[in-house]
Amino acid sequence: MKRILLIALIILVPFVLLDLFFGGHGEFPWSGIPGFFALFGLIGCVAIILISKWLGHHWLQHKEDYYERNDGDR
């Protein structure tokens, strides 16, 4: 876990530098933030996984025979 974050941080550095050179045309609220899309990707990815899994476990996911059980007499 710590190792992954460390590697991520190391890779983030060149991207932030690149952003400082090429990015930031000031069109959007996030245009000035170097490394914005890196953070967005990481946080978005984690959020998608956690929220979807939460929805699934608390509501949407059921045993595989969920529908078949009810089709028994057909």
């Binding site: 876990m1 992954i4 974050l5 590697i7 991520a8 890779i11 983030l12 991207f15 952003d19 490394g35 914005f36 899309f37 890196a38 953070l39 967005f40 990707g41 990481l42 946080i43 978005g44 990815c45 984690v46 996984i49 956690l50 899994k53 699934g56 949407l60 996911q61 059921h62 045993k63 595989e64 969920y66 529908y67």
Partner: peptide
């Protein structure tokens, strides 16, 4: 940036992501 750091997110949570034999 977007894609590589998505990869890190996957790496962090890969343990949670395995298939589950359920119906959604």
């Amino acid at each position: 940036q977007l894609l590589i750091f998505t990869g890190f997110g996957f790496w962090l949570l890969v343990g949670k992501l395995g298939g589950e034999s359920t119906v959604t």
